[in-house]
Design a binder for these strands. Structure first.
Lengths: 342, 342
DNA sequence: TTGTATGCGTTATCAT
DNA sequence: ATGATAACGCATACAA
């Protein structure tokens, strides 16, 4: 029970091998090459080389509290958006020499506390957090212990943390302008339940505001909002039928709030025997690899997922490296991808 | 630079608070409750409670070499299959009190060595590994240092490690039997390049063997094989045209080796203006959330992804808990999902 | 049954 | 410029 990593050289081995003290080796490793006699430096370098020594992050962590581990807590790993962000974050971490510890919250608010707890136990340096429900209080251990946190996609009021997200207002406007330009003027926004998820409510709110503004205009669009859940597929179909009836001389279209909603809508439309872009127009937030293959192709607004992940990681790493400015809000633009459905 | 986690209680704090020694607290924590005087035990419990003390996994790791961290190195996080497996693994780890450290190899064999290196540096207890290329030698540091490894989806000859995967032979047979039963008798297997990926070659080999066997029969099927890459989309279309011509009085179908191939095939078929299940039959390995929404619905064979991840994690955890039997090979069955395309 | 002392691999604070 | 030594938080061999 004594040799944690059998065969692994320690700093003491290197010191002995080079005929110097541990302190010297440590200094060499910490970039103070210049302050060492060239002769000694060389001997240390050789010893490190020939023993293929690598410092133990664990021991370092114990010593000065920095583990070079970054935590990523994601609301639901099932969601392609989460994975896309994860991808970008992992890349940035890797580049900066950090390891990524993953925690899936499975959409259960209760798990959030456990996750943060576990992460602080491990002396994780900082956190990229995709909150499950921004209404419940952010568990204070992490931020309380002074670990930096950056929020992704879902903002949290009253928390002093960086926030990176797509520009939801712009995304919704982009979608609506596109629909209008193509003559779709009766639009239904289908979203997953807002339930304190800030990105969803942001999209809903700007949608409603935009529609209110349209109400004044001569050829203005008309809009309505609908929350879709796992088990109200039937009602969604009803809602679509209704939308088409109410449209009268208007052209009905649906705007999906995210990829999950897109899936549900596509499924309902299929069940109705309709074709997207024909009986009903469509555009969805979130680009996917399969968007082009459904029906006539699904128009989408792509989130810059990779950039979101990278940016989040970079923000965090900046702070870990000592930068301490005020909390930033970074909003990246989405990109319109026009296909047959609109 | 002294307080790693300001405000966090240490075992010494608990000891002081309870008026006992650190050793006693440590014993209490390590399940030796019974050997303690009830009185003392209670005082320790109270102290832990009121200080909300939690042991530091880092310090423990440094002491006895076990970090309660499990590494997951995945060939390509972009692949939905990887993510699905990841999901299962994360769940199992979470349940067993392990944290998951993620490493994306991005399909670059070179990164594999870096990943294993990083993981051993961190004294990660064990590894779930989805190799990029099983032809190149498995970097020995991890296995050499006695860390257990379990291989997922991609086997490695000559390595003493557990291996968990879907039963590829059975999956291919299942697909072929289904196609035959529906009268599709000229089938093309479209796969990503095998390139030393054992699961792909396994599928190809059993396909070829099955076809060879069919060659003898009266109403036997006929088969061919094609490797699809990112940039031979044109050729794929040619190949499909050719397939249909050659079929003559036969009914042509294509079998996708995985979800990536499915995407490429669907795209090519769309570009040809064909409809799956009409001009050409289709079944694909890997179930996806969008399979039902493309054309008439894509028939698939679902891999038990969640079980694969969980099983892999469980195997690893078993070994971490001391079990040391011979290396196991666990093959789970796939499930046929029939839709319109076949 | 409990306490004391030592070491895990580092880094930092003293001396030298 | 370099070396001895004391922590970091925990677990254990040994002593009591």
């Amino acid at each position: 029970m004594s040799t944690p990593a059998p065969g692994r050289a320690t700093i003491a081995d290197v010191a002995r091998h080079a005929g110097v003290s541990k302190a010297t080796v440590s200094r060499y490793l910490n970039g103070r090459h210049q302050l060492l006699t060239p002769d000694i430096a060389e001997r240390v370098r050789d010893a490190i080389e020939s023993l293929s020594y690598r410092p133990s992050p664990m021991a370092q962590a114990l010593k000065h509290g920095r583990s070079r581990l970054i935590g990523l807590a994601v609301a639901d790993i099932t969601n392609p958006f989460s994975v896309a962000v994860l991808q970008g974050a992992e890349k940035a971490c890797q580049e900066a020499g950090y390891l990524l510890v993953l925690f899936n919250l499975g959409n259960k608010p209760g798990r959030e506390r456990d996750a943060l707890q576990a992460l602080t136990d491990y002396q994780i340096d900082g956190l990229i957090l995709n909150r499950v429900d921004t209404r419940v209080q952010l568990w204070q251990s992490a931020v309380g212990y002074g670990k930096p946190i950056v929020l992704v996609d879902r903002a949290q009021e009253g928390v002093d943390a960086d926030f990176v997200s797509v520009d939801n207002a712009a995304v919704v406007c982009l979608a609506l302008e596109h629909l209008r330009s193509r003559g779709w003027d009766e639009v239904l926004l289908v979203s997953e339940p807002c339930n304190g998820v800030s990105s969803r409510s942001a999209r809903r709110d700007t949608f409603i505001a935009a529609m209110a503004q349209q109400a004044g205009k001569p050829q203005g669009m008309r809009g309505s909002f609908w929350e879709s859940t796992t088990d109200n597929r039937e009602q969604l179909m009803q809602r679509l039928l209704l939308l088409r009836e109410q449209a009268r001389d208007r052209r009905p279209a649906v705007l999906a709030g995210n990829a999950v909603a897109t899936l549900r809508i596509a499924s309902a439309v299929q069940a109705l025997g309709w074709s997207l872009g024909r009986e009903i127009g469509f555009i969805g937030i979130d680009e996917t690899e399969w968007a082009g293959l459904i029906g006539p192709g699904l128009s989408t607004i792509a989130q810059p997922t990779d950039a979101l992940g990278r940016t989040a990681a970079r923000c965090l790493i900046e702070r870990l490296q000592g930068w301490s400015g005020a909390a930033r809000t970074i909003e990246l633009p989405g990109t319109l991808q026009v296909r047959g459905s609109s």
